[in-house]
């Protein structure tokens, strides 16, 4: 069978099963507790208690299988070691102690912290700036589309684009990377930017800021639009200048949205992998936790330490995620 046909068949079967499940299970419920006869009222109440779970079940099942199970399994793997030739043995926390003694792990922790300090803040600030500045101009929506566009590019694609921006050719040759081209044009000497220790981290961060600013802008722009126009007019009459209106009237009113944007980007930053993997693969002092995990799991084939680092990432992300969800809920209510 042609692969396309196979795909189509899969889709058709998948959708039919979904529709069949919801239809069939509800039909069955109504047959077990018919909403008629002498016990109609009691049956309706029972059926109404059960019905939400019929709808929730597929999602809960999928989340359990693809989210909860891997978490438990990763935790188990992080506490075991593979025995050469087959099988595994419990090793307690030795994977963790081994990991904590590796300088590369602490380099990754340090870099992740650096990313955490710079990227969410910068992306939120640029997003807020873009949202405010594009709000009142005629070509604002075009500007917004352009700023939002990097969101549509995959992280790896963006990494490749920026790798070309930072590209370096030997001195004397034509520079195809725009950064070096500019440096040379201004009379400097070309630099291999991605190997500059410490600073190369920031060159990688630029890529994520470039992508996430668009996301921040879209969310914050909607929030800015939601501010009642009268509060701004009242501030104008009270004598506030545009800067004061922005910082004292507008920003405080969208503070919770700003926090949601900031935490969302924070979570993305903690998991950052693709950009580092595609641009430096963690060399020259740019290692981050997710790439460290990948190195351990799939290059060194060390299940134990790899899983341990995965758990570390999860533990770091979890509190921020909880806080983010709470914020988002408060925003909605």
């Amino acid at each position: 069978m042609a692969p396309a046909l196979q795909g189509l068949l899969t889709i058709v079967i998948g959708i039919s099963v979904c529709v069949g499940y919801f239809f069939g299970s509800n039909l069955l419920l109504d047959m077990l507790f018919p909403p008629r006869g002498p016990k109609a009222g009691r049956n309706t109440n029972i059926a109404n208690l059960i019905r939400p779970w019929l709808f929730l079940f597929p999602a809960l099942f999928a989340l359990g299988l693809y989210l909860m199970y891997p978490v438990v399994e990763t935790l188990r793997l992080s506490l075991t070691d593979r025995i050469p030739g087959g099988g595994y043995q419990w090793t307690g926390l030795s994977n963790y102690t081994q990991m904590f003694q590796e300088p590369k792990f602490w380099e990754a922790m340090g870099n992740n912290l650096l990313w955490l300090l710079v990227v969410p803040g910068m992306a939120t600030i640029f997003g807020l700036l873009a949202a405010q500045l594009t709000d009142r101009i005629a070509w604002g929506s075009i500007a917004k589309s352009i700023i939002f566009m990097p969101m549509a590019i995959s992280f790896v694609g963006a990494a490749v684009i920026w790798k070309l921006v930072y590209d370096a050719r030997p001195e004397g040759q034509d520079q195809i990377g725009i950064l070096n081209a500019l440096v040379v044009w201004f009379g400097g000497t070309p630099e291999t930017w991605l190997t500059l220790p410490f600073w190369n981290n920031f060159f990688l961060m630029v890529v994520l800021i470039w992508i996430q600013s668009g996301f921040a802008m879209v969310i914050l722009s909607a929030a800015l639009r939601g501010i009642p126009e009268e509060t701004v007019e009242a501030a104008i009459i009270d004598g506030a200048n545009p800067m004061q209106i922005f910082f004292k009237i507008k920003v405080p009113q969208i503070r919770s949205t700003i926090m949601v944007v900031w935490t969302t980007i924070t979570v993305i930053v903690l998991k950052i992998f693709d950009i580092v993997f595609a641009m430096t693969n963690g060399q020259w002092g740019t290692q981050v936790l997710a790439n460290y995990m990948y190195d351990k799991l799939f290059i060194a084939r060390d299940w134990g330490v790899g899983s341990a680092s995965a758990i570390v990432i999860m533990v770091l992300v979890l509190p921020i995620l909880v806080w983010n969800v709470r914020n988002a809920r408060r925003e909605m209510s």
């Binding site: 509060t231 004598g239 009113q253």
Partner: peptide, 21 residues
């Protein structure tokens, strides 16, 4: 002349209070 220098004050239908203050 900008609103603040006209010697006026305005009360809005929707109150227009600053919600965060």
């Amino acid at each position: 002349v900008p609103p603040a220098q006209r010697g006026i004050a305005m009360v809005f239908q929707s109150y227009a209070l600053y919600p965060h203050m």
